[in-house]
């Protein structure tokens, strides 16, 4: 038996909106640690890892580890029916082939339940070791989204370079080229508006903008984003989910053959 009650139901709605473009079907894993997911996009270029820790739920019951295969578009359709202020409860029976999403309005005068069919999904799970990165850039998530959107109107790829001068996002296309440099600015009024660059070594990597733009669908989840870079390794674009966990996107770089 599984029963997870999330008072801030809008978080789950936002999580689904952030990943459904990248991944079609995925297994949600439920254990005593929390509600999690790891899935690759269909081309196996990017990977998303989600964790919602059990402590972040008002009520968290998971009698035994469960993996529930869901079509993310269908799940998003159901969660769209929840109000932004609704409490969402996820329920499933051990060995059952459905999951139920229950929505309660804040005043408890409207209670809905939506039952969704589960599916069997063969998925590969990748082991991602904790790594030391050459550079970690933390910046406002809206600024990062703006940069990715702006650059994708010029080119298809972005070169992200971190030096002690700052972080540079560059692209080139048929009509021309563009460079956007963000310098560290820790003296802003609000910490979430700061750009903080933690660099051990300069790093420069090339990525497909299409994926970066897809990751920025997670912008509503967090005011800030952190971008972890090491030469020749996938970038990690992380959006923290307040007091609950994170959505992390891993993207393989384009590498000279």
């Amino acid at each position: 038996m599984l029963e997870l009650r999330l008072v801030q139901g809008s978080l789950l709605k936002k999580v689904l909106e952030s990943i459904k473009e990248l991944v079609t079907d995925a297994n949600f894993d439920c254990s005593s640690t929390g509600f999690s997911l790891q899935a690759m996009d269909s081309s196996h270029v990017a990977l998303v890892a989600l964790l919602l820790r059990s402590e972040g739920f008002e009520h968290y019951r998971c009698d035994r580890n469960m993996s529930m295969g869901m079509n993310l578009n269908n799940m998003a359709k159901m969660l769209k029916c929840a109000g932004n202020d609704d409490i969402i409860t996820i329920k499933a029976d051990d060995g059952g082939d459905t999951v139920t999403f229950m929505f309660e309005s804040p005043t408890q005068d409207k209670i809905s339940d939506f039952e969704m069919k589960l599916m069997d999904i063969d998925s590969e799970h990748l082991g991602i070791p904790e790594a030391e990165y050459h550079a970690i850039v933390k910046m406002p998530s809206s600024e990062f989204a703006r940069i990715c959107r702006d650059l994708s109107s010029i080119g298809d790829t972005v070169v992200i370079s971190v030096t002690k001068e700052g972080v540079k996002f560059s692209t080139k296309g048929d009509i021309g080229s563009a460079n956007i440099v963000c310098r560290q600015n820790t003296s802003v009024d609000k910490p979430e508006e700061a750009t903080v660059i933690d660099m051990n070594e300069p790093v420069s990597l090339t990525f497909a903008l299409r994926y970066m733009n897809s990751f920025t669908k997670a912008t509503p989840l967090s005011n800030t984003v952190s971008i972890s870079l090491s030469n020749e390794l996938p970038v990690v674009v992380e959006y923290k989910i307040a007091e609950m966990g994170y959505v992390r996107f891993y993207l393989a770089p384009k590498i000279e053959e």
Binding site: A46, E124, L126, G127, P234, A252, K254, E256, E257
Partner: peptide
């Protein structure tokens, strides 16, 4: 010319 790598080429399956 740069080629897109697969994410699977960086991590092992568990």
């Amino acid at each position: 010319n740069r080629n897109q790598k697969s994410i699977k080429s960086f991590y092992s399956t568990v």
